[in-house]
Design a protein around this nucleic acid. Structure first.
Lengths: 192, 192
DNA sequence: TCGCCAATACTGACCAGTCAGTTTCGCCTC
DNA sequence: GAGGCGAAACTGACTGGTCAGTATTGGCGA
């Protein structure tokens, strides 16, 4: 690094994320990304070797961020599993509100079905969730016949809520509601 | 299947659905679709005016099918709301297993963010679900602070499970699990 | 013979990716 | 601290392949 890098790759990814969030993949031109990032088109190719790579980089960055945030939260809450679950839901929702583009992007066109790196981060995330669910199962807090499915639901919840959110949806509202459904379901609890 | 037969648009949509399910939009060529459907490329333009229209037609067809199936189910089960809910989940899961391409397609690249027709069908579907949830709320069966959100979750459930399904997932297993989580949550029920 | 449509040839716009050239900057020497 | 060098960062006009969409043909069934 004798020569300090002047362009941060994040600048480019931010610009690209904006564009991919509003238009499908094939409608986003590299020239657009370059223009928005105020960078020459060639510069993009210094860091990634194709448009698709840029795209994947955005999603990977997003997932890694949630993962980190969840890990931090889990480190703090070392209490009951339901507390941990709450922390996870909180992290997912916070992330979704902070970076809605990532969700929009993922709607708008995945490519190359399987990018190993991306897949790895995603499954790491699922693993975290599943392990909390299983721990809860083991110590009798939870009763979930299939934690692997539940983990998938949790990711999908946020997605569904964000992409087609009822007007006026706030962050705490969503957190609370997801936890409500997830922990006790929608059945009305008996009399008492 | 004489040559005279005017091509059924379903043949073309089926072929296209197969392709779109395995490859992202921009990698699917109209020539491929035509070849797979054993149809001339020009014929496709008889029915839709662009590749994108073909794509939208597939999704619209999918949504309409679920909608019809749900309406039929609801007509039969005129019992309690939880029975109706069960019917809805059943219809969603059945559909997902019958036409997994539609889910894969929707992952692999939505276009033109808002197609009014498509949006209309989707929101019709959501409306059905919400009305069952609200009815359940009214007659004291359910306790759901935000049915609109729950309806979104229900669509997402299936999606999440299907796209990243744990190996060995069967249809009844998924139905049962979704209902489990949805109606009673994952918390272990008290001693008794 | 007519009408329908598969097959196929054609074309023009579009855009990802390249690369020769330009700028920037750290560092060395005097 | 000025000046000069080399290397790395960056640029954007250009190119070549691709493919959506159109036009044409020819074969088959009625």
């Amino acid at each position: 690094m004798s020569r300090t890098r002047t362009t941060s790759t994040d600048v480019i990814l931010d610009a690209a994320a904006d564009l991919f969030a509003t238009r499908p993949f094939h409608e986003v031109k590299l020239d657009d990304i370059a223009a928005k990032a105020r960078v020459g088109k060639g510069t993009i190719y210094l860091y990634w070797k194709s448009k698709e790579e840029v795209y994947l980089a955005i999603i990977r960055r997003g997932f890694s961020a949630v993962l980190t945030s969840i890990d931090e939260d889990l480190a703090v809450h070392d209490g009951s599993c339901s507390e941990k679950l709450e922390a996870i839901v909180g992290a997912l929702v916070d992330f979704a509100f902070a970076y809605p583009e990532v969700y929009r992007i993922m709607r708008s066109g995945t490519l190359t079905p399987e990018d190993p790196d991306l897949q790895a981060v995603r499954s790491e995330l699922v693993k975290r969730i599943v392990s909390v669910l299983k721990a809860g199962q083991a110590d009798g807090e939870f009763d979930d016949p299939c934690p692997a499915l539940t983990a998938q639901y949790m990711l999908s919840f946020v997605r569904g809520a964000l992409l087609y959110s009822p007007p006026g949806l706030t962050r705490p509202m969503l957190k609370r509601h997801i936890l409500h459904v997830l922990t006790r379901g929608i059945t009305r609890r008996g009399g008492r």
